[in-house]
Design a protein around this nucleic acid. Structure first.
Length: 445
DNA sequence: TCTGGGGTCCTAGGACCC
DNA sequence: TCTGGGGTCCTAGGACCC
């Protein structure tokens, strides 16, 4: 904990949904749900309008549809989110070199390391000065994002800054003056502590601990006995608002993985092997793009009953070769009983090194091996869903307004033309295709 | 026909080494 | 012949986060 409140946490409000509302004006003020639209999709982000109907992150899309049938359900356009996120992160980095992104929509900023040439007001880290600066920063976020709002917390530690940014959402600011931290935390549920999820909450509940104040009454030894070494020490620290974690700008990736949940359980082993192969190729492509390679290949298999299995194998030296990763993944699958059906398959590589093993012996690498093309059983490829982005050969980009009885209605609307035209097409019109956002590799730059 | 996808970190047991 | 102790690596599973 620092002597002054100089750690800032910024969180973009309902980020994915807000980007959709920014880019599709008719969605403004309306419930918007971004997430998986397939049979097994879950909600990634709900706009505040949708939250009023009880729609929440991580809820199944099925349940979200039941709660708010008139919401627009969108699959997500990650290139747009990444683009907007980068603008915000660049703004934050202009404030301080110590910016630690936690995800596309969240970051810590160390104001004590701020660039005082550009922001002389940050020479003064008093509460009034920091408050004024945070308001200025929130206004700048709106400018660079084209109207998105952010919630900000400023405090003497990461933990308190994050708690603070949550207190006045959306579009809020809370500064926690030094010395008031413990009083703020005491009445709060233990669930505000990062790392306290459902399992830990239940263990604590059984010993009568519900709030941070309750937690303060347990000794460190008791917490370690209850929750294990790491979690016990950690909770003991945070219960006293003790948190000295620095803001760290560069964090190296420790693993790269790809996984997919299928609308219908898989039973065909050949198809499973093909899917793993394809995922291995994706993982290898991402490794190469990042200049990384790894020694441990892991597969993840979720069975029909949601039992999740991981199998891994470690090589003597790191690889980024798609054929090697694919072969190991298929070998790992061979030892598993999947006769009951598989709902998820995944491939990952860890034990990363930022160098690639040279071809020491001049052997032909396995890269030359032919990798089969795979037809993914994606049953909803052209099952039109409202909000889905589409491309028409002549009209260009649009999105599905409604569908049924073999007809799909598309709205060709952009930020510039909010009252863009609406057209109806036959569902099997070959000129009409689902518009797939570019993958990171396909994007220009 | 409940339950995504991308990650991080921790635990615990066994192998192996000194 | 009845059994050490520490350290590291690997594997599997689980909790948690956004």
């Amino acid at each position: 904990m620092r002597a002054v409140a100089s750690v800032l946490h910024l969180d973009l409000d309902a980020f994915f949904a807000a980007v959709e509302q920014r880019d599709k004006p008719s969605l403004r003020g309306k419930p918007v749900v971004v997430g998986g639209v397939g049979g097994r999709g879950v909600v990634s982000t709900a706009s505040y309008e949708a939250r009023r109907y009880g729609v929440r992150s991580a809820m199944s899309t099925r349940e979200a549809r039941a709660r708010c049938p008139h919401a627009a359900f969108l699959t997500g356009r990650f290139h747009a989110y990444r683009d907007t996120s980068e603008r915000v992160m660049a703004l934050l980095r202009s404030v301080s070199p110590l910016v630690e992104p936690l995800s596309l929509d969240e970051a810590f900023v160390d104001l004590a390391a701020a660039d005082r040439a550009t922001y002389p007001q940050l020479a003064d880290l008093s509460v009034p000065s920091v408050t004024a600066f945070a308001e200025h920063l929130r206004a700048r976020v709106e400018e660079v994002t084209g109207g998105l709002t952010a919630s900000v917390g400023v405090a003497s530690s990461k933990f308190l800054a994050k708690v603070a940014s949550d207190l006045d959402k959306p579009d809020g600011l809370v500064v926690v003056p030094r010395g008031t931290e413990r009083d703020l935390l005491r009445p709060m549920s233990v669930t505000v502590i990062p790392g306290v999820g459902p399992a830990t909450t239940e263990r604590l509940r059984r010993v009568g601990v519900h709030t941070v104040a309750d937690l303060e009454t347990l000794s460190e030894d008791e917490l370690v006995r209850l929750l294990g070494n790491a979690n016990g020490h950690w909770l003991h620290q945070l219960a006293q608002a003790q948190d000295d974690r620095p803001v760290v700008a560069e964090r190296e990736a420790k693993s790269v993985s790809v996984e997919g949940t299928y609308d219908h359980d898989l039973t065909d082993r050949v198809l499973m092997e093909q899917l793993l192969t394809r995922q291995a190729v994706d993982v290898a492509r991402r490794l190469r793009k990042a200049g990384l390679s790894g020694r441990t290949v892991t597969i993840k298999v979720r069975l029909h009953d949601f039992t999740t299995l991981n199998r891994s194998t470690t090589l003597a030296s790191p690889t980024d070769a798609p054929a090697t990763i694919a072969r190991l993944a298929r070998t790992l699958l061979a030892d598993l009983d999947t006769s009951g059906g598989v709902r998820l398959l995944g491939v990952g590589v860890s034990g990363l090194a930022d160098w690639v093993q040279e071809d020491l012996f001049g052997e032909t690498t396995e890269d030359e091996e032919e990798l089969p093309d795979v037809e993914v059983p994606h049953h909803s490829r052209r099952a039109w869903a409202p909000g889905m982005d589409v491309e028409h050969a002549e009209m260009g980009r649009g999105w599905v307004w409604g569908s049924g009885r073999g007809v799909v209605t598309v709205r060709f609307e952009t930020a510039e033309t909010p009252a863009g035209p609406v057209r109806s097409y036959a569902e099997d019109d070959p000129d009409l295709t689902v518009w797939r956002p570019p993958t990171p590799e396909e994007e220009p730059g």
